[in-house]
Amino acid sequence: MRLIVQANARIIHAISEINPDAAMTLFIMSEHSKTVDIPVPTTGNTASPKLFTLQAVEMATSASLETMDVEPYLDDIQHDRKLRKITGEQGYSNTRWSFTKRPKRSSIAFSHRLLNGSNEEVAQLYPDITVTMVWQEAGSGGFWQVTDWTAQDWSPANSDTEE
């Protein structure tokens, strides 16, 4: 099933201060919701050997998806000694999302983890995020409008990675 989500920049910016990878995932889902060529599935994940930063999210929301170049605003896990120590040489960043439908008010849960080369979760850098959405009628159909979000009550468990 295709998921159609609209999240405004204010909410995406607020989330990016807590979990920039979840914020970027939400932004990309929101952009792809506007096309018919790239359907957004109700569960999925974005995985890359890089981590999004606050600056990358700010840049992305101020440019169009086609023209943005966030490369300078990504942190490379492979080149960060601290992160490489946790994830190993083949480690990567993974943000999963999962949509839960309710009649009028639904939610999407985002969880970001670092994985090692064997796809095992080895670290959590950011709190999990849940966005809540209300159904907006539009024409003959409608979409989910993000109205609110919450972050998991969480404290960094990775303090032992300090040099």
Binding site: I4, Q6, S33, K34, T35, V36, D37, Q136, A138, G139, S140, G141, G142, F143
Partner: peptide, 18 residues
Amino acid sequence: TRLFTHPLSPAKPVAAHN
């Protein structure tokens, strides 16, 4: 080129090239 109505684009149709 297929033109679609889209709830996030009520003012103008969305074009998809397939």
